[in-house]
Design a protein around this nucleic acid. Structure first.
Length: 433
RNA sequence: GGGUAGGUGCCCGAGUGGUUAAAGGGGGCGGACUGUAAAUCCGCUACUUCGGUUACGUUGGUUCGAAUCCAACCCUGCCCA
């Protein structure tokens, strides 16, 4: 074997940065990288995504960006659309069974996933595999063979399962299958490295075992097998700064499909303590800059900086990378106008009303989508949340409103919900009954 | 199959006959403040034609009155087989 070259060690270090490689040690990865170049066979980098809910968020972006980094070095991205595994739902980090999905939902979500992933990775150069392709073929025998490779004790050793088990919360048997199936993915796509969040440790490591097990079944020499490496990346906390960003808590997520202003605003809402973490995992700023930011954040007054401005920088960077620089500028302007200067937004949904008619405000709030029910609308008014044209606060629950033709009024509920009311002349003749 | 403990609002969780639309916490929403949709503080958190109506696994029953008592059923944990 040729000696390990420093350039590949450096490459490996850069790739591992922020994450954890298993088995641990830079050299494992460096060796693979070098061999790949020497033999001119790109590494197969596996990432599995379950189309359980249609939107990818910035948590996924952390892993996808890493996948992109491998792509940029000429390696093969193997994207698994877990349309079979999605029928179970990953029990990782869960304390209860996931709600099942219909097959139709899974299909729609899968397509959306690919569209969104294409914002980060180069989809044309990636290999895309739906795991239903081989799981549907597997048959009972295949399933039994798969399940025979792992013992119940091994599965129960997994943290989530053992916790649920000891807390007497139900575990459905099919949930045990999830790690096995994910591991089998690795066998089928002959993965050299699997990417995952740090909660994927068990599943990804099982992939190694499974690759070995199946190699033995095929009668291959176990010593000649190189099971996949595992690169685990930290889980990004959501906008609350506490719980990891997860599809299970949509309000805590920043989605890749979020509009520029939405993405900007959500990034501005992360706690100050999260700034550095986002910069590390998402913006992937150079180490030096991160260090500098850490110092400044530790003593904002001393450095004469405002953490807010740092957040603005982060928010603009992210919006620019998912939308465009222009969109980022516009989002910043709109944000400042709306929240700093408390101006009305320039664009908002419209709701058309007939001029001269009298409308009860409570009804209007519901019709215009500003409140989910009339009771809620009343509460909003009582809480002082409802304003007209940004000025007049409505205090009366029984208030009514009417307008003259071509007049427009801005109805506002809270700081973020606006609707423009347009009054038009009644058209034609109203039929009289 | 036998025994036993449970099933409460978006989530967790108190409540064992009557001001209980149901304590407390989390989450969410709103307000004030600010440097932002940070932090902090405060309020709200079933629906309604404002008469009421619907809610504590389901369906019946007892009672002037039930989340609370009774019966059957469904679901979950644990022990035994």
């Amino acid at each position: 074997m040729s000696p390990l070259l420093p350039e590949f060690i450096q490459q490996a270090e850069a790739l591992i940065q922020g994450g954890e490689i298993l088995p641990s040690g830079v050299n494992h990865l460096a060796r693979r990288l070098q061999t790949a170049v020497e033999t001119n066979t790109p590494l197969r980098i596996k990432l599995g995504l379950d189309p359980t809910r249609p939107d990818l968020h910035l948590g996924h972006a952390v892993v996808l960006k890493k996948l992109r980094a491998f792509q940029d070095l000429g390696h093969k991205a193997v994207l698994i659309i877990g349309d079979a595994t999605a029928l179970i739902g990953d029990p990782s980090g869960r304390n209860n069974t996931r709600p099942p999905l219909t097959e139709a939902e899974v299909l729609v979500n899968a397509q959306t996933y690919l569209d969104q992933a294409s914002k980060i990775i180069n989809l044309e150069k990636a290999e895309i595999v739906r795991n239903s392709a081989f799981f549907n073929e597997m048959g009972l025998q295949g399933l039994l063979q798969l399940t025979a490779q792992v013992t119940v004790a091994q599965i129960l050793a997994r943290d989530d399962f053992s916790k649920r088990y000891s807390q007497n919360t139900p575990i459905a048997l099919h949930e045990f299958l999830y790690p096995l199936m994910q591991a089998y993915d690795s066998v089928m796509v002959r993965a050299d490295l699997e990417l995952g969040g740090s909660d994927q440790r068990f599943n990804n490591l099982l992939g190694r075992e499974m690759q070995l097990a199946y190699a033995k079944l095929r009668g291959e020499d176990p010593t000649s097998i190189n099971p996949q490496l595992v690169l685990l990346l930290p889980l990004l906390e959501g906008t609350d700064g506490k719980v990891k960003m997860s599809k299970s808590y949509p309000e805590n997520c920043i989605n890749l499909t979020d509009s520029p202003s939405e993405m900007f605003g959500k990034l501005m809402s992360i706690p100050d303590a999260m700034i550095l973490r986002y910069e590390t995992l998402l913006a992937q700023l150079p180490e030096q800059q991160l260090k500098q930011h850490a110092e400044m954040l530790a003593d904002p007054e001393g450095y004469g900086i405002n953490p807010r401005d740092m957040k603005v920088g982060l928010a603009k960077f992210m919006v620019a990378s998912f939308h465009s620089g222009e969109a980022a500028d516009l989002a910043e302007e709109a944000f400042n106008a709306l929240f700093r200067d408390k101006a009305l937004p320039t664009e908002m949904p419209e709701h058309t009303l007939t001029a001269g008619e009298s409308y009860v405000l409570v009804d209007l709030l519901v019709e215009a989508g500003l409140a989910p029910s009339k009771s809620e609308a009343r509460r909003l008014i009582q809480g002082g949340a409802v304003k007209l044209n940004g000025e007049t606060k409505v205090a009366d629950v029984l208030a009514t409103i009417s307008g003259i033709p071509t007049e427009s009024l801005v109805l506002q509920a809270g700081k973020r919900k606006f609707v423009r009311l347009l009054f038009v002349q009644r058209m034609g003749v109203t039929p009289i009954k």
